[in-house]
């Protein structure tokens, strides 16, 4: 039966509030690390995203000619909502907000719904650059989605469960990253791709004037940028839970270890990702299908053989 969830321990409203605030703080951390790596000025890095956020709240919206306003707004609001929903199954201190028998699929589904949301953000303004960005996201999605799914399922395979708390518990002896390094790298790279950040920022790249984000202003831009940052943070936290032993660690309390590991993953991801140029989506699809799909399948096969030999038991 499911373990106790955060809702059982703290009650519904406080637990949801904690996860929401934690998610927003995680997004701020990602944005700050990103600013610090890009500009090299650590001091202003925390203030700048906050200022940009405050500006987004008060800035007047500009609009375009004949936008599809309903779908545009739905898309913008969906990006941060999905990011926060994906956090519901990330275990902190051994507990998740919501524990189901298909946590990994839930995380994957939130990221898949992002396909629809980002395409809508590109579609809504009735503008060519934005729509091009939306289609670029889908093209990129076709490249990263299957390797990402295989990476997720590999962790579930070793744990014998799709519940994230079970996956963390299964890593008591050995962190999964040791036996599944390919899945770990693919998962983190996939996270950068679905947040269309760093080398995978082609949907919002400068060559199409900002792509999906080109016509966003005010609250809409705030929501989309916030959603991308929170998603990246949520994926880093998920990577810690799935591959880096969750909150296991000596001396310090569990949640602190979890926080430190998440910070380390975010920093490593941003530091490495910002050193790679933006990749063209038409160059990533073939790599995804010809290289990453076989590689992740082989990784899953290796883990399956280890499972049969009782390596993880």
């Amino acid at each position: 039966m499911p373990d106790e969830t955060l809702v059982d321990v703290w009650g519904l409203a406080p637990a949801v509030l904690v996860i929401m605030v934690g998610g927003l703080a995680l997004g701020l951390v990602v944005a700050a690390v990103d600013r610090a790596v890009v500009s090299g000025e650590a001091g202003r890095a925390v203030v700048e995203p906050l200022l940009a956020g405050a500006r987004g709240l008060v800035e007047q919206r500009r609009t375009t000619l004949a936008p599809d306003r309903l779908l545009w707004r739905i898309g913008c609001a969906a990006v941060p909502t999905l990011a926060l929903l994906s956090l519901a199954v990330v275990p902190v201190g051994g507990r998740t907000l919501w524990s189901t028998s298909a946590d990994l699929v839930w995380f994957n589904a939130m990221e898949a719904l992002l396909w629809a949301a980002v395409w809508l953000v590109g579609w809504g303004p009735n503008a060519v650059h934005a729509l091009t960005g939306g289609y670029r996201f889908l093209a990129q999605g076709l490249a990263y989605e299957l390797p990402l799914m295989f990476a997720l399922i590999t962790a579930g395979l070793a744990a014998g469960s799709l519940r994230t708390t079970d996956v963390v518990a299964a890593q008591e002896g050995l962190w999964f990253v040791v036996t599944m390094p390919v899945a770990f790298v693919v998962f983190v790279a996939g996270a950068a791709a679905f947040a269309f950040w760093g080398p995978f920022a082609a949907p919002a790249a400068a060559d199409i004037a900002g792509g999906v984000t080109s016509e966003l202003s005010g609250v809409d831009r705030l929501l989309v940028d916030l959603g991308r940052a929170v998603f990246l943070g949520a994926a880093a936290a998920m990577a810690v839970a799935l591959f880096l032993g969750g909150d296991a660690g000596p001396w310090l309390p569990g949640p602190l270890w979890f926080l430190l590991k998440t910070l380390a993953v975010v920093t490593a991801l941003v530091w490495a990702g910002r050193r790679v140029p933006v990749l063209r989506p038409d160059r990533t699809v073939e790599v995804g299908w010809m290289v990453l799909v076989p590689l992740t399948l082989l990784q899953a096969l290796a883990v399956a053989v280890l499972v049969l030999n009782g390596f993880y038991a």
Binding site: V105, A109, W115, A116, L138
Partner: peptide
């Protein structure tokens, strides 16, 4: 839960 999230996942990607 599994059927629900798989339905959401598959249908979203299908529509995209």
């Amino acid at each position: 839960v599994y059927l629900a999230v798989v339905t959401a996942l598959m249908m979203t990607i299908e529509m995209a």
